[in-house]
Design a protein around this nucleic acid. Structure first.
Lengths: 205, 205
DNA sequence: AACGGTGTCAACCAAATAGTTGACTGATAC
DNA sequence: GTATCAGTCAACTATTTGGTTGACACCGTT
């Protein structure tokens, strides 16, 4: 990208390290976009480099290649786990905000779904916590907000399924609602449904 | 694959057409596997040809290339639409069989999810029916099996979300249940949950 | 001032990949 | 019997793609 004759801008004294960190960050940000959009197989390293306005060799330099970059991205996004652990807010509110977060910025969800499809059974889960935190659900069962007769693990999967659905089957949404998943009309109708749904998960009369 | 000297087996009289059809079929079957497993970008045409035990050129000959093959496959699998239209069986039974069909053979679901991720908003939906059949849901609302206060389109999406969840987030399943999504224990617990869930969608007392 | 290290890049390379070419086989039509 | 056509394939090609090489600029240290 740099013009032939023009010498590169000089990295200021203590800016050196900052530049390296900055490069890592912009690369990760670009990778986030590219991988969320096209998945691992569809993503292109030169495209990531272009989005980051950086030479593609730096992907190898800092992350050891496409796969290293992908792994780094994944492990970084593991923190973003959904646990419904948010005392003070109702389950319906938490579900709604999960849904809205996903509708406002589908990238995280898409990344998760791409990963799910590429998931191979029996693969080693190296360092990442091998157990899902269900305490947020269980706590709500104890307070009677959710029916304690229901399986907590199922509850979590079910709730997550509802919030990811618009990204998993956007075409079915389009055909069933007549509008895209990003349309306010869908948002409104589906939000109401999710809240209603959650309210039905309380203890049975 | 054929040995050098050995002449090819002669196509019998009326077998000619049958051979062409057969080639198309084995290619589509192989493509179904390959695309379901790796998605469009990850699939390899030489791999599809190998699975079909056929020269890869035939993919171009019969389908006009990788994309043509993919399109043909998609349009063929459109019939498999889920509509909950099955009078005589309860909604819980239908949901359960959707779930079990998916667990027994994930390929159709995976294909759908891959497609969902590749879905670009605003793209033309060429010939395929642009409206989702909701009559199966509405009918169940009229008989009082499902709450008629609920949005039919939402009901469909929600139900489908539940049945596809195991394939969309197999890693979360693994972490939440401690077993793979293919494990009988998961199947049992999750089936019970889905049935319970559906039973809660009836009219409120 | 020479040296070594870090951050960066342009140019190159090898493998993979989708697609093309030209040939061959046998059956049917003329 | 010759021409034509459908079906098939091995070998080839152009392009894409992830990755490597070698260089260079700038800084701090000796």
């Amino acid at each position: 990208m740099r013009e032939p004759g023009k010498p590169r801008r000089s990295p200021a004294p203590e800016e050196r390290q900052a530049d390296a960190d900055r490069t890592r960050r912009v690369l990760l940000a670009a990778a986030y976009e590219e991988f969320a959009e096209k998945g691992y197989a569809g993503a292109r390293v030169h495209e990531i480099a272009a989005r980051a306005n950086v030479n593609k060799q730096l992907i190898n330099y800092y992350f050891g290649g496409k796969e290293g970059l992908y792994r780094t991205l994944q492990s970084q996004w593991l923190k973003h786990e959904a646990t419904f652990h948010d005392p003070g807010r109702s389950a319906a509110d938490v579900a709604e905000s999960y849904l809205h977060d996903g509708l406002d910025d589908p990238r995280g969800t898409r990344l998760m779904v791409w990963r799910g499809l590429s998931y191979a059974e029996g693969q080693e889960t190296p360092d990442e916590e091998p157990v899902q935190d269900l305490s947020g659900i269980v706590a709500r069962q104890q307070t009677g907000e959710l029916d304690s007769g229901l399986d907590p693990a199922c509850l979590l999967i079910g709730m997550m399924a509802m919030t990811t659905a618009p990204h998993v089957m956007p075409d079915m949404v389009k055909k069933a609602f007549g509008v895209e998943a990003s349309d306010p009309e869908f948002r409104e109708r589906y939000t109401a449904f999710v809240r209603d749904m959650v309210s039905r998960l309380g203890p049975r009369p």
